[in-house]
Design a protein around this nucleic acid. Structure first.
Length: 573
RNA sequence: GCCCCAGUAGCUCAACUGGAUAGAGCAUCGGACUUCUAAUCCGAGGGCUGCAGGUUCAAGUCCUGCCUGGGGUACCA
């Protein structure tokens, strides 16, 4: 069942960037009412964060776009807008700059006060009201249940998990789902491979299938089964034994996957069985519906899906070979048709997000066309394609082939590297870029490894707070945040104030990698503060208390980002 | 052949979806620890954003065509 929407707490305020934008829209409107500007429709005001600090905290080029409608020079428009700009507590300096930008600087005493606001918001800090409680399912990993989770799926796991966390922080109701492909022919091959290894383990002459799974894990698993049940599968009907062993193997693989993913700090709300789409009769019902609506053609005994949205030929949905063998199932598009209906109609998600490796990109138009053919809005289906991971040791490639059984598993990576570097490093690229993951670098605790840079900042914060407590300061004592006027204090708070916008952007653009970049910037800003500002100072109790508040707020912010990333925030390093 | 992704500093990558002088880290060179963690900080050099056109006030970003690398090309998912 879907989690209730009403359970979601709304504890967040509007983004500052949105407030700035709406103030400027008001300014344009008021200037028009006072006839300082000619009438024209008030445009959408895009607010950006300037690259250079000299340009303030926010800027908008909106006046550059208005020259034609206003028949005025951009700088002149900007001057009028500023003249009629309403005031707001956070507003500091507002001025015209460059060719006609409006630059906005936050009021520094307001900025200082946000330190307290951040502390009061606590573990809700950074959360934004974007999803309005819409229900979204993120389906990810969904690796074939025929072998251990490998590196490619690891990137999938990290992207899906962090995206889900970010969406949750952005006020969506999120469900994490793992789709178990237990209905395809790969599963049968897996059963055949297990059967052969099982028989071999019991000393029988049993040929290994030509296209079977060669990995050593199949041998180990089969040997384990042989230990558990002896000869019982050999006494069964061969086909039944293959199927039973396949199912037993899947359970075994899934148990391992669950454990390995848990070690990566990834867990799922639902493990959905592909087979259930057929067992429930859903697929057959939908096939009838598609046929009735004219999306199905048949030739040479095969069933094809066809749609005007598909530029290519029709897509095979069920083949004659499949029909002649009841153990086989229709093609994967068939499953996709039933699955998307299950998600959007039977379970009622507002949106279904799929996280797929880029090698599946060819399926995107088909799934969208099928969604549309079912009468569903294809925009409710979103497919995130991520590029491949090249595993390296130093400069050397680690070559892999799953079928040949040569690969580095998630478990091996976790044992060697640990979940923190895996999660962080796999999120230091956009999903569109291939990643070289260097196992040697990942374990290296040096300045080349950004995960430790960020964690070190957190440990340093904790160290300061420990030291303060040792010196007799009450770490929870209130201070006068108005004293936080130093350039580095201000810069740190302003960086902390970016968090909600980063979360909003990462959620909206499905860009979880933004968080790792932000985490590094935040850590850098803290280190700069540490360099410039002594926190614990006997001779200046007021300032010490104010700075301790700032340090606590920085810890909150850093811990929030690391929490979203699923990376630990160590107290010591 | 066709489809998708990428091409930005020596290297690995960002760039808030069309805005100001394209930014970080690493590497290189030069500095900073009797001081709350030097896994840190400061400074310097480093660019025709693959090439050629186009769109407009404005292009790394959009359009067209090439070049290079990776992936896919449908009964494995």
């Amino acid at each position: 069942m879907l989690p209730g929407r009403e359970g979601k707490e709304h504890t967040v305020t509007a983004l500052i960037s949105d407030q700035v934008a709406s103030l400027i829209e008001d300014g344009i409107r008021l200037a028009q009412e006072a006839q300082a500007l000619p009438p024209f429709p008030v445009p959408h005001v895009g607010v950006e964060r300037p690259r250079q600090t000299a340009h303030g905290d926010y800027a908008t080029p909106v006046c550059l776009q208005l020259t034609e409608e206003a028949r005025m020079a951009p700088r002149a428009i900007a001057t009028r807008v500023i003249e009629y700009l309403p005031t707001a507590s956070f507003l500091g300096k507002v001025d015209v700059a460059g060719p006609g930008y409006i630059n906005v600087t936050l009021d520094s005493s307001w900025v200082a006060r946000q330190t307290r606001a951040i502390l009061e918001t606590g573990d809700k800090w950074g959360h934004v009201d974007l999803g309005s409680g819409d229900c979204v399912q993120v389906e990810f990993v969904s690796a074939n249940p025929t072998g251990p989770i490998t590196v490619g799926s690891t990137r999938n796991a990290v992207i899906g998990d962090v995206l889900a966390s970010v969406l949750d922080a952005a006020d969506f109701v999120v469900e994490r789902e793992y789709y178990v492909n237990d209905a395809g022919s790969q599963v049968r091959k897996f059963g055949e491979s297990l059967y052969a290894r099982y028989a071999q383990a019991l000393g029988e002459e049993e040929p290994f299938p030509g296209d079977g799974y060669l990995g050593g894990y199949v041998v180990d698993m089969a040997a384990e089964f042989a230990r558990q049940v002896g000869h019982s599968y050999l006494k069964m009907d061969r086909q039944e034994a293959i199927q039973a062993l396949g199912e037993r193997g899947i359970e075994c693989v899934l148990g391992q996957a669950r454990a390995d993913l848990a070690a990566l700090r990834v867990s799922f709300d639902t493990w959905f069985r592909e087979r259930s789409l057929y067992d429930s009769g859903l697929f057959d019902r939908l096939l009838q519906k598609l046929r009735k609506d004219g999306y199905v053609t048949e030739r040479e005994g095969a069933v094809w899906f066809t749609s005007p949205d598909l530029e290519e030929d029709a897509v095979l949905i069920r083949s004659p070979q499949v029909i002649s063998n009841p153990e086989e199932r229709p093609t994967y598009l068939a499953s996709d048709v039933a699955y998307v209906w299950n998600k959007l109609m039977e379970r009622g998600f507002d949106r279904a997000i799929y996280v797929w490796g880029a090698d599946h990109h060819g399926d995107v138009p088909r799934v969208r066309a099928a969604t549309k053919a079912l009468g569903l809005d294809p925009d409710r289906v979103e497919i995130i394609l991520y590029q491949m991971v090249n595993l390296k040791r130093g400069t050397e490639d680690v070559r892999m082939s799953k079928r040949a059984g040569e690969f580095v598993t998630l478990r091996e990576m976790i044992d060697e590297v640990g979940p923190d570097p895996i999660r962080f490093l796999l999120l230091t690229r956009t999903v569109d870029a291939t990643i070289d993951f260097d196992l040697d670098l990942a374990v290296e605790q040096s300045e080349k490894n950004p995960v430790y840079y960020v964690q070190y900042a957190h440990a340093r914060i904790c160290s300061i707070l420990r030291y303060a407590a040792e010196q007799g300061w009450d770490p929870d004592h209130e201070g006068d945040v108005a004293l936080l006027t130093h350039e580095s204090e201000q810069a740190l708070i302003r960086k902390m104030l970016e968090l909600p916008e980063i979360v909003a952007y990462a959620a909206e653009q499905r860009a979880p990698h933004r968080l790792t970049f932000y985490a590094q910037e935040l850590a850098a800003q803290f280190h700069a503060f540490y360099r410039d500002c002594r926190v614990v100072a006997e001779e200046d109790a007021e300032r010490t208390r104010a700075r301790l508040m700032l340090v606590r707020a920085a810890r909150t912010t850093l811990a929030q980002v690391l929490g979203l990333l699923g990376v630990t925030a160590p107290e010591r390093m």
